[in-house]
């Protein structure tokens, strides 16, 4: 079980996680990033910057 670092709700991780992966906490809606895989460590994703995009 993995916990949202903001609201402590349970967060579902995909079967093939990668470092840097973006997730959303279904409980509080915050965007999270997988910071490390072993063990799985979650942190708040960075805010969008001005030059983000396609």
């Amino acid at each position: 079980m993995h916990e949202c670092p903001v609201c402590e709700a349970e967060v579902t991780i995909s079967a093939d996680p990668v470092e840097g992966e973006l997730l959303e906490c279904e409980e509080c809606g915050i965007e999270l990033e997988i910071l490390a895989l072993d063990p799985i460590t979650l942190g708040e994703a960075p805010d969008a910057e001005e030059d983000w995009g396609e």
Partner: peptide
């Protein structure tokens, strides 16, 4: 080359 990995990258 990546930063955040979104569904497209996955």
């Amino acid at each position: 080359l990546h930063s955040l990995i979104r569904r497209d990258e996955k």
